[in-house]
């Protein structure tokens, strides 16, 4: 079901790049009660790439991210119009099982939110509810692999039974990433994953994101221009509920087409 398209969206100079599309949003509009948060957003998410969503606060980038695994369903009064596909399949179709969708499209939140359980139980949570482990040994293996992939295993291997809430902020965020990886998602959504972390922990998580893109499609919302430049291959600039520019990160940061993008990345507004 992969569609190969050229990524020549809004920018006239955008280089066409042939990449398989993992997720595709078309004319996405989101309403919170009477207030419209997104006004017809079109965005393609290429497979096994890091796509960064940037833009000033309140521009709708987090709202769009939360549409991708239907987390907006949990917000009372939220309504989504338009369609979003995962591997060509409409995720807002009535026949789609939201629970299954969220297992395929995992999410890491702004503030690390480990459950008040042990480190092991935190990572084992997803595999347990989805029945991914054949037995205890297999579960242990999944947990260890996930922790290793999240680059946390060496730091916590002797205290897997201790509460996950006792870790440092950066460790907690990597624990949340491990928790998301453990259900073998295809896409990982990250909502400002480093905004609550210090620079060293941020560097660790960024390295991790870079490694993860070999296996996963990643969409990251960030307020840090440097972070978008460092970790992403494609960037979409949101403003007032619309995408003003989307293209390869390198080009966006060196030679943006839109005046607003230029002003934003050079720090003149936002």
């Amino acid at each position: 079901m992969m569609e190969n398209v050229s990524f020549a969206s809004t920018g006239a100079h955008a280089r066409p790049v042939d990449l398989p599309v993992k997720m595709h949003g078309r004319k996405v509009e989101v309403f919170y009660g009477q207030k419209q948060a997104l006004h017809g957003v079109d965005l393609e998410i290429p497979e096994r790439q890091v796509t960064a969503l940037i833009g000033p606060s309140g521009c709708g980038k987090s709202t769009f991210l939360r549409c991708l695994n239907r987390m907006n369903d949990t917000v009372e009064g939220a309504r989504v119009v338009g369609d979003i596909t995962l591997d060509g399949e409409d995720i807002y179709n009535k026949n789609i099982d939201v629970v299954e969708l969220r297992a395929r499209v995992g999410m890491v939140f702004q503030k690390p939110n480990p459950f008040p359980k042990s480190i092991f139980e935190n990572v084992a949570y997803g595999p347990k509810i989805h029945g991914l482990a054949k037995n205890k040994a297999h579960l242990r293996e999944i947990v260890e692999t996930s922790l290793k992939r999240a680059g946390l295993f060496e730091e916590v291997k002797d205290r897997l039974d201790e509460p996950g809430t006792g870790l440092s902020g950066g460790q907690q965020q990597r624990l949340c990433i491990a928790r998301a990886i453990a259900v073998s998602p295809e896409v990982i959504l990250m909502d400002e994953p480093c905004s609550a972390l210090d620079p060293i922990a941020t560097a660790t998580v960024e390295e991790l994101i870079d490694e993860l893109k070999q296996n996963y499609t990643i969409v990251i919302v960030t307020h840090s221009m440097q972070q978008a430049a460092r970790v992403s291959q494609r960037t979409a600039m949101f403003h007032l509920g619309r995408i003003v520019e989307v293209g390869p990160t390198e080009k966006m940061f060196s030679n943006p087409d839109d005046k607003r993008t230029q002003d934003y990345i050079t720090g003149r507004f936002g």
Binding site: N69, M71, T74, L101, R102, M107, P114, Y125, A180, V183
Partner: peptide, 8 residues
């Protein structure tokens, strides 16, 4: 959110 986001 964390739990629902994992597909629970």
């Amino acid at each position: 959110d964390g739990s629902l986001g994992l597909g629970a």
